[in-house]
Design a protein around this nucleic acid. Structure first.
Lengths: 228, 228
DNA sequence: CCGGGGCGTCAAGATGGTGTGAGGACGCCA
DNA sequence: TGGCGTCCTCACACCATCTTGACGCCCCGG
């Protein structure tokens, strides 16, 4: 999860940003002074900094400069001042962007995304690995023993549902509802057929399970850490 | 020397920027239409692009999107529009910064410096190769087995959407929305026809795929590493 | 020892999606 | 206005996938 350090001395802005950013899957840290901001930045290494220019102790530009001595973290400057010299100063000190208050929250979010994208922080494709089996949820690509495995849509949904909850006991009803839809729940034979196909394609065996464990009378369990 | 491509249809802005930027040790190239901008960007590989949203032929956001398919060049969007949606759209399409007209030249220069400082990276030729197939995304040129291949605009957009995400499973809905526009999503027969035409022109076969893999019921996949 | 329920396995029919070819509609340019 | 390229539409054969039923096995309780 992306950590954002918000530096502002107005509690109102702080509160507003905390809720807005928090609602958009960001972890929000706050600081109200320049010194505090620098200390926190060094301590928690945030992924992005939103910085108000009008701080009580230090000049915002100075904060940017001192951050840039050791950090390349993206910095978005926030300010009520719309003067050219302020913008030029902050940007040349090393800020990435300059937004004038009042600003639209949507715009700020877009600028955060842009700054993050540049920083290269969005390359976290979820690739799960279980021994010689890798499951790339983003690419919908499954590799077993170095070879790509072709799965039908239903097979993939079933695999997806299982690997998303490793080690957890998944009841037949739960699996049926998640893979086939809410109207299903009693068609245990579907599961038997597709679990078999999955096991076959992934190189697993019912009598010597490496990935899919049968829990008789209840459901199935995806083995968290297979014996390699 | 840093090369900047300025895209704007107002000769006045063009002239003003040419002198200002020229006086600051930048080499200035200009384009007045979106198509011209894309062509020039591919030909001269500028170090930075300044782009007006209100172009006569293409929507500015569309230009950003098409540039971003193959290039990471910093893009600063210039616009008279101050609407939130425009900003969000342009930034999420891949723009680095958004400046509203009228703007101060000093600020623009500072934003150029900021964008450049971040970029650092090297410009790569936008030419992708897959076995005996080469795709020049910038010049919109495709070569198969040493022979140039003529593609219609729609065919090229489809190819572009696929080669930009090698190995990834692209759903029919996603492809339709990206090639035909957001309003589409259910016209699977369009895809079938154009995928067939692409396969034919690229020397690919449905029953022995080298490039385009069919994932029945889901979509298509551009094979990352074709068997040569 | 016997019976039953659940599971694994297999194969065949039903279903819906895909490949393919052709033809018409439309806009663009001379 | 006519030709040309491109896009869209349709019908049909074919194929992958889904569904369904049947059967043997094992485990467990009666």
């Amino acid at each position: 999860m992306t950590r954002i350090l918000v530096v502002d001395d107005e509690p109102q802005i702080l509160r507003s940003l905390r809720t807005t950013l928090g609602a958009n899957e960001y972890e929000v840290l706050t600081a109200e002074t320049g010194e505090d901001a620098l200390a926190q930045a060094a301590a928690v290494l945030p992924d992005l900094v939103i910085l108000d220019l009008g701080l009580p102790d230090l000049d915002g530009t100075e904060v940017v400069r001192r951050l840039r001595v050791w950090s390349d973290v993206p910095i978005i400057v926030l300010s009520v001042r719309d003067r050219q010299e302020d913008k030029i100063g902050a940007l040349d000190a090393g800020a990435d962007d300059y937004v004038t208050k009042p600003f639209g929250l949507g715009e700020l979010l877009a600028r955060i995304r842009a700054a993050q994208r540049r920083a290269g922080g969005v390359q976290t494709e979820p690739v799960l690995a279980f021994g010689d089996l890798t499951v790339d949820l983003g690419r919908r690509l499954v590799m077993a023993a170095g070879e790509p495995v072709h799965l039908t849509p239903t097979e993939f949904r079933l695999l997806e549902a299982m690997v998303a909850h490793p080690g957890k006991l998944l009841t037949q009803r739960w699996l049926l509802q998640h893979v086939w839809g809410g109207a299903y729940g009693a068609e245990a034979n579907y599961l038997r057929v597709y679990v078999r196909q999955l096991r076959q394609k992934l190189g697993d065996r019912a009598d010597a399970p490496r990935f899919i464990l049968t829990e008789p009378g209840v459901g199935y369990r995806w083995v968290a850490d297979p014996p390699s």
